[in-house]
Amino acid sequence: MDSNLIEVKNLKKYYNSRIGPVKAVDNVNLEIKKGETFGIVGESGCGKTTLMKSILQLIKPTSGEIIFEEIDICQIDKKELRRLRKIMGFVSQDPHASLNPRMTVFDTLSRPLKIHKITRSKEDTIIKIVTLLKEMGLQTEHLIRFPHELSGGQKQRIGIARALAVHPEIIFLDEPTSALDVSVQTKILKLLEKAKKDFDLTYFYISHNINLIKVISDRIGVMYLGKIVEIGRTDIIYNNPKHPYTKGLFKSIPNPDPDKKIEKIYLKGEVPSPVNTPTGCNFRRRCDHASKICEEEEPELKKLDDGREVACHLY
């Protein structure tokens, strides 16, 4: 559990817009350890999807390093990249949009097998795909279906099966259940949990659903406006969040317990646009504890005694 699979160092992704640079991902550092589930939680526009796609090399980062097997994967050539695609799987948010509407389930699942030469013959491919489908709780009859002939949950299973087909080491999951109903979500979560055990996988999971991230992750990072504001072991952060944003965010979660309801609004206002972010601390305008130093100096991630890191001048 301890060796790092991927290390992200000073990763930045800036976009140019008419009113100034958009800092979608701003100086993010993190490690993904082998065998863990690392969760990123944050509200819309915090840069979590951009971060994930940058690590996956689906978006070229502006600067920074992503170290995998001692190599910076931002610098590798096409051939190496293709090898990397076998190791890193990706499941995207919208199960419907992620499947080619003109391909049957069989075609969709046979593509990764062909690209990475996993199976040697047509027979091999068929057997492999049928086995995979059964593991996903689907049947042979689904093979000849097109995406629009499947339900949301079934489509997401196909998405996961596509990622699993080539035996990756790590799968990047971009809110794979946010478009699904809760009862379907349960099934997908169980499926992911089982696949993780069966295939020794590492997960990088992003979501805006805080309870979900809590349930699934070993370690989490909380993102706000392109930056990680708090990172560490899930139980430590949940039991005692330190960063004012994390605190507010956790307290905004609607609670399914009739004895506990949100009594007070902990987060004022809304996430500002990531263009021309304020100097100093990004969060200071929504923060009750903001002082002079927050205006002048950008807080760096600091390690606390319990092992977590927080980017706040209070600590």
């Binding site: 990249l81 992620s98 080619n100 003109r102 690209i115 080539v166």
Partner: peptide, 26 residues
């Protein structure tokens, strides 16, 4: 810009294959 083309890139499809299998049929 569709997600299925992005997913195709993520499984390692070449540009040629993306045009042939994903773009043209659609």
């Amino acid at each position: 810009e569709s997600e299925y083309v992005e997913n195709a890139r993520a499984i390692g499809e070449s540009t040629f294959s993306i045009v042939l299998r994903y773009v043209i049929p659609n």
